[in-house]
């Protein structure tokens, strides 16, 4: 049947032409790279997971709760590192959240127009300084200051609490928390400022119209609406604190102990990976270190997913409200 034969050829030719056209090729090349970005997370997970099999099989869930880290005997428990990472990050949040929110309020609501952009730039620069340079400064400038002034001061007024007792080396959990706070302030303040700026101006005007002061306006209009986004910003900061490596390694003391005292040295998850992978010549040792990396990856990934979802959802709602 010649008719349908020609039709068939026509369709086929069209298809081939479509495939050979630049548009089709270009779109799919860019698609491949987009797919690559998407697959990166899966690739990282797979590699770390398969390389930590040895340790996962040997210790199971007990790895998370083991307090002992003894490479010579082949006993590996990650609890001291999890404790160090979580505690130093909590200290960092306690210092950084109020300061960052203050900065965000000032830069989005209160500062005079000509100051906003240069000050935002300065806060961004805080994020631009490399982590290892913070470590260097922390080790030679901040740690002596903590040892000579901050620790005696804290001990004299809060010394009855177990947190502020112990040796005063300067180096330790407190120093780690403070350096982390410095490093996450730009993250939290930049994202909070962004979500506060996304609050529609009509909300502010409504509050002022019924006679609110600036603070009342911020509380009623800005905070109420930007709440979700601010929580997202804090979680982003927490994610950064959990994974930060170099600055903390240089000031926290790197000793795997679990102590209530913030003056004692501690060790973080990223810290133990970075400083012990060279010594890890046995398979099991290396596998345990990689499992810590896998844990850190999963925690920070989940934290970031959750935080981004919060920020995204909020921005979407406001975009809807503005239109």
């Amino acid at each position: 049947m010649p008719h349908s034969f020609f039709l068939f050829r026509k369709i086929k030719l069209k298809k081939i032409k479509r495939i050979l056209s630049g548009d089709f090729i270009f779109k799919n090349i860019t698609l491949i790279f987009a797919l690559f970005v998407l697959s990166l997370a899966i690739l990282v997970f797979y590699e770390l997971y398969s390389r930590s099999q040895l340790s996962i099989n040997k210790f199971g869930l007990g790895f998370l709760f083991g307090r002992e880290w003894d490479p010579v005997q082949g006993i590996f428990g990650a609890l001291p590192f999890i404790y160090g990472t979580v505690t130093s990050s909590i200290i960092a949040l306690m210092i950084a959240v109020p300061i960052s929110l203050g900065i965000a309020i000032y830069l989005s609501e209160l500062a005079p127009g000509y100051l906003r952009s240069p000050l935002s730039f300065m806060v961004e620069l805080l994020a631009a300084v490399p982590s290892v340079v913070y470590g260097l400064w922390g080790l030679f400038v901040m740690v002596p200051w903590i040892r000579d002034y901050l620790q005696p001061f804290l001990e004299s007024i809060l010394g009855f609490l177990p947190f502020f007792q112990g040796p005063k080396f300067g180096i330790g959990m407190l120093a780690g928390g403070i350096i982390l706070a410095i490093m996450i302030i730009p993250t939290i303040s930049a994202v909070s400022r962004e979500v506060m700026l996304a609050v529609p101006n009509a909300q502010r005007e409504a509050a002022f119209a019924i006679g609110a002061t600036r603070w009342e306006m911020i509380r009623v209009s800005v905070f109420k609406y930007a709440k979700t986004g601010i929580i997202g910003a804090i979680l982003l900061g927490l994610g950064r604190a959990l994974g930060e490596t170099m600055a903390v390694i240089m000031v926290i003391g790197n000793r795997p102990n679990i102590s209530l005292s913030l003056f004692e040295p501690a060790y973080t998850m990223s810290g133990v990976i970075a400083s012990e992978y060279v010594e890890a010549t046995q398979e099991l040792y290396l596998s345990a270190l990689i499992e810590i990396g896998l844990l850190l990856f999963i925690i920070t990934l989940l934290m970031n997913i959750f935080a981004r979802l919060l920020v995204w959802r909020m921005m979407k709602i406001f975009r809807g409200a503005k239109e």
Partner: peptide, 23 residues
């Protein structure tokens, strides 16, 4: 993809280093 790119930029750099070390 957009979401994943945002999330990946928050993953600690040491993890990327460890990944390349392993791979």
């Amino acid at each position: 993809v957009r979401f994943m790119a945002d999330v990946l930029s928050g993953v600690p750099s040491i993890i990327m280093g460890l990944f390349v070390y392993v791979a």
